[in-house]
Each structure stands twice: as C-alpha cells, then as structure tokens.
C-alpha cells in the first residue's frame, strides 16, 4: 500500500496515542467548548485505561464470537448439519433485528450491572455478521474445485482444510471487520448499564452538560473503529491476493 494512502491513518494513530499519553496537552483544543470553570479534559478517570478496557472488551467478545460463529457455520454447511442451515439462516436474520439497547437491558436481570451484559450483547451482535459471512463463503466455494479435489482422492477433511477454508478466509475476515466496528459502538452503549468503557466519558459529558467530554469519548471510539476497520481491510486484501495467487 502506498505511503500516501497510509499517511492519514498513521497521523490518526499518532494523534490517538499522543492524546492518550498526555490528554492535558490537548486542553487548548477542547477549552472553547466548555464554560469558563468547567474541566476541558475528562477528569473522572484515566482515559488511556478506559480506552484499553474498551478495546479489550470488544476484542474478547469478537474473539469468542469468531470461534463460535465459524464453528457453527462449518457445522451447518457439512452434510451432518445440513438440516440446520435454513433454520440458522432465519435465526441470523431475526437476530439482527434485536435492538442493542434491548439486548443490553434484557441481559441485566440475568447478569447484573457491569461488564457482563455488555460482553453478552457484544458477543451476540458479533456472532451474526461472522456467521453469515462464513456461511456464505463456505456455500459459494465453486463446486468444480471441490469436485476436482474429490476426483484427486482428497478426503473431506483435506478438502476443507486445503480448499474450502483458505478460499473462505477473506470473507470470514470481512465478517470479523463488520462485527468489530459494530462492537466499538455497542460497547459505548454498555456504559448505560455500568460497563467500564469509553461510553463512561460520553455519559459523564451528557450528565454534566460538558460537550468536551462527549467529543473526547466520541472521537476516541470513532478513531479506534476507523483504525481497526483499516487494519482488517488490509488483512482482507492481502488474503485476497494470497487466494488469487
């Protein structure tokens, strides 16, 4: 990838790291947004620590979702699980209509306030795109390729490991990418049920009418989502090249 295209992302990354390392140096940026005696930089916790917690929460949820979703997608595309395929399609379709706040709120009675409900909601929302993409990728592997492999005497496991999985990888990564970006936003809403994420900064801003806080939380979440999106897009592209080769 050319340096010209990469440059804005590197600048964005440097800005995020610089801001987290020393938020106070950015005081002048946010000062005009607040009333004279209000703090311009989030002062109710460590921004860097919250950012790490936010990223960790999205990472853990997406990791587990990837494992489960890919395993389920593999299962329903094998002869053994073929009967589950139409059901799985419909459930995924319906699952995507569940509003995030409803899922969060409904998880609270079972898990109490805190990180639990948010992890569950993130996990559930991450499942769907990964499952859908993996399932689509596995069911659209050109049959002439698998037939040729069968003709060459490859076992189903060999066909899966050497042909189906590698051909599906870019789309699986594409699903992970969608899930991660959605996850960064949903983790923010998690703070309404007391999850430790950057949503805390935004909610603190809403409660104290401090626009600078809201903006800091929003910009950090957006920047993280954009950076991770780009990173995974790069992975997707190099996998495509590798697949084409």
């Amino acid at each position: 990838m050319s340096l010209v295209r990469l440059a804005p992302r590197i600048i964005l990354l440097l800005l995020v790291v610089g801001f987290l390392a020393s938020p106070e140096s950015f005081d002048f940026v946010f000062r005009p947004l607040v009333q004279a005696n209000a703090p311009a930089i989030y002062n109710q916790g460590d921004l860097a620590a919250l950012t790490l917690l936010h990223v960790r929460m999205v990472f853990i949820a997406t990791l587990f979702a990837t494992i489960i979703a890919v395993a389920l997608a593999i299962l329903v595309t094998r002869p053994f699980g073929a009967e589950f395929l139409p059901l799985a399609r419909t459930v995924v379709n319906i699952g995507q209509t569940f509003p995030p706040v409803a899922v969060l709120a409904l998880a609270v009675p079972a898990m109490g306030f805190g990180n639990g409900p948010t992890l569950v909601a993130l996990f559930l929302y991450a499942l769907l795109p990964i499952f859908e993409n993996t399932m689509t990728a596995l069911t659209t592997v050109p049959p002439n390729i698998t037939d040729a492999a069968k003709g060459n005497g490859m076992t189903p496991i060999q066909i899966f490991r050497q042909i189906e999985l590698p051909l599906s990888l870019p789309m699986i990564v594409g699903g992970i990418k969608i899930s991660t970006v959605i996850g960064f936003g949903t983790a923010t809403i998690g703070s309404t049920v007391a999850a430790k994420t950057l949503g805390e900064v935004i909610i603190a801003g809403l409660q104290s009418n401090n626009l600078a806080f809201i903006l800091q939380g929003a910009l950090l979440v957006a920047a993280l989502a954009i950076l991770v999106f780009d990173l995974l897009s790069m992975a997707e592209r190099s996998l495509m090249k590798w697949k084409a080769a």
């Binding site: 947004l33 970006v181 960064f184 936003g185 923010t188 809403i189 703070s191 309404t192 950057l198 949503g199 935004i202 909610i203 801003g205 809403l206 009418n209 626009l211 809201i214 903006l215 939380g217 929003a218 979440v221 957006a222 989502a225 954009i226 999106f229």
Partner: peptide, 17 residues
C-alpha cells in the same frame, strides 16, 4: 461511513450544541 463509526450516544450529545 465515518459518521457511522461515531457512537450513537455521542452523536446525540454532540448535536445538543
């Protein structure tokens, strides 16, 4: 696309001003 990455609770708040 970038607009979509801004968390909803934040965008709601940012429009207040």
């Amino acid at each position: 696309n970038i607009l979509q990455t801004i968390p909803s609770i934040a965008l709601f708040g940012l429009l207040i001003l």
